[in-house]
Design a protein around this nucleic acid. Structure first.
Lengths: 227, 227, 227, 227
DNA sequence: CATGAATGAGCATTCATTCAT
DNA sequence: AATGAATGAATGCTCATTCAT
């Protein structure tokens, strides 16, 4: 029922245990340094890809930002595309992983969805993953394998979970009918929207995210007494 | 009360009356041919931009696809960016224009929103404009002036209209509370989602658009007796 | 002893009798209009070539400046190079022509040279021919036929005349020795210099042309009592 | 009294110690190779610019001639214009530098001017700098900053030196009057002329440079007993 | 391993020249 | 004759990738 392995559509590359530290402590083992360098590249590449998109990102800039030589990138990633895919895939892993845990038995459906929404706001919208998610939407059409990977590992599973959750809610009388069960995408639609909206219009028209999410849940499940 | 002029952020270029026909009918006037060529360029560019995104599109390919020489593009558009913006702006004009018409007095709020949704499905999702809309979401962050143009002319106005409509619905007792009025973006969120979803996952997981829209409306306004 | 024909190194094109008049008088004969157009092209081309040099001049700009269509240039000149050569050659004809007249018997050598210098100042340095002369110096190396044409028709003849004149001056006791006769180029060296200097440094260091020429003659022939 | 710094109008770039050798000796250090390549580019660019002028020179040809890839040019120079300016500026530095040394006290004025003239003949006219000087005259009008740089660093200073020298000659009774002092440009006019003449007419009418210079000095200072 | 100089295919843009109207 | 839209070869510049050090 869990531990479903992540489908890897393409080469994912090696992972590293250590977060990139800019500080260059003198007496570090080779492996450590190497891992740090790799992480620095990933972080720099993420930033650049987010700012400019895939095609417009220059590996030169990535290297500069990471503080490594351009050649070093090629020691860790086959090419630009592999670097891109790696980033998109690994950044989403921590979000995917906990999804396999079954929902707590006691909690009302609405609260579970609410928790899910807040988790999304906190851990995706509120972090760099927000940009990664946008990259997937943005570059997906040109990287079908990436889109598929994401669909298989994230979307499909999330939709399945959501449906199961709603089914349970229906059984427990917390949900009136099958409308939402048949179209669980409607639950997440506003989340995709705030990612897009944020990227496009944040400057002139910032969204009240909290209010929006609460309103969404109120509409889906009926007005709540307390948030 | 209407006829708000379209804010033009940049140069929009000349329009042409005739749709591009690949066939080269012999007895055509200069101006006609020229317009046809221009249209062919626009069509070809749209296709290429959709397939590859802005940065990865080669004007060489656009020219080839349009059946014109590369230089001809520059007779009609200042540069690649102008071509891109022109496409994005002009393709959306026919969608924007009718938006200023006030909603029919008699029609119930739900029906108006429903009509709006179906119009979107028919005229945007069901046409090439679907790709244009995706391009706006996709490339917008790198073309702030474009995003702003779109926001001022489409989003802002649409949101305003929607809010006014809902306000009227509230006054007429068709809507229970202000939840949706405060967050009219929730009305359109699924529409943005289907655009993205369609581009990314259509192959593995096609959406039941009609059903989704109906479900969305049912959730917003309560189950309808008939669609 | 005179009327030596002008050696034409390359194609020179047709000449026209009428100066370009911008005004478009309605009832003019075809031939007249055509000639006016041709002259307008020549004038415009001269201005553009002077401002930008041969390679950087666009025929588009020439046409615009002349108020004709681009194609019209090709009705009058085989190509860009022919237009260029035509200009350089014809502009200098009026300067070359009178050179064949023998010097007045009575006039002292110094006065003849002085008259020549002032004529140069007046008719070359003081007119657009100044730029033509610069173009010859500037673009000559890349148009050997042009350089040769100019050498045969202007330089060679001018040097010969000058030498003959000086020879006469020696015979008449107006000149002390053969120094200048052996290097008549020294007579014209300052004239070449002021053309170049004017083009490069006029802004920061304008030359006192009159004073310079007088000083030059004073040095060549001894201080004059009156200018 | 000397060491006036060279006004640098634009970026001058790095210098390299080694002359470009086409031969690829195997055991050379990176920096050395790089410098050699840079020098090869400069040499090739100089040759091309001289043959064709600025606008008509193709960087492709420069690269081919230098035996490097096109991209390598851009590792050393921002763009075509920077390459051009760099060449013109650096080639003239060795000529400018010694100009600040005060003239030897003992030497007669004529001999100093003579030495200057011969130095010019030897180090400019007799070397590639001859072409550089022509490029300055040729392209100056289209590169005002270049013309100004050259004026400030070379012409202005040279004219000042010359005037001071002549002033001293006047004080010492070696010069009869102020004619030349007021127009020191007359001293260098023949040098500009021989550069131009050489570029245009050398084939049909080579100049006797030595004789010309001697004649010039004879005219300026009176016939010398011995050269 | 790490570096970064070198490479060269790739692309946007320009402009002399042609030719249908 | 005159026009100017169309052409496409030419060219400056970029940037992913390689490889000698």
């Amino acid at each position: 029922m869990s531990k479903t392995p992540v489908h890897t559509a393409g080469p994912v590359g090696k992972t590293s245990t250590e977060r990139a530290g800019a500080a260059k402590r003198p007496r570090r083992k080779r492996a450590e340094q190497s891992a740090a360098r790799r992480d620095a590249i990933v972080a720099a590449a993420l930033a650049e890809f987010c700012e400019r998109g895939y095609a417009a990102t220059r590996l030169d800039d990535v290297a500069k930002r990471a503080g490594v030589a351009k050649g070093t990138i090629y020691l860790n990633f086959r090419d630009k595309e592999a670097l891109f895919q790696e980033i998109v895939v690994t950044m989403m892993v921590p979000v995917i992983a906990p999804m396999d845990a079954p929902p707590p038995q006691e909690m009302p459906t609405r609260l579970i969805v609410e928790a899910f929404a807040h988790k999304f706001i906190r851990e995706v919208y509120g972090t760099e993953r927000r940009h990664v998610l946008r990259l997937i939407m943005t570059e997906g059409p040109r990287f079908p394998s990436l889109a598929e990977h994401y669909y298989r590992n994230v979307v499909e599973r999330a939709v399945g979970r959501m449906r199961a959750l709603l089914e349970r809610g229906l059984a427990r009388g917390e949900i009136a009918d099958r409308t939402l069960i048949d179209h669980p995408q409607l639950v997440v639609a506003p989340m995709m929207m705030i990612i897009i909206w944020g990227a496009l219009f944040e400057r002139y028209a910032p969204l009240d995210i909290e209010g929006l999410v609460k309103a969404h849940l109120d509409i889906l499940f009926g007005k709540a007494r307390a948030s």
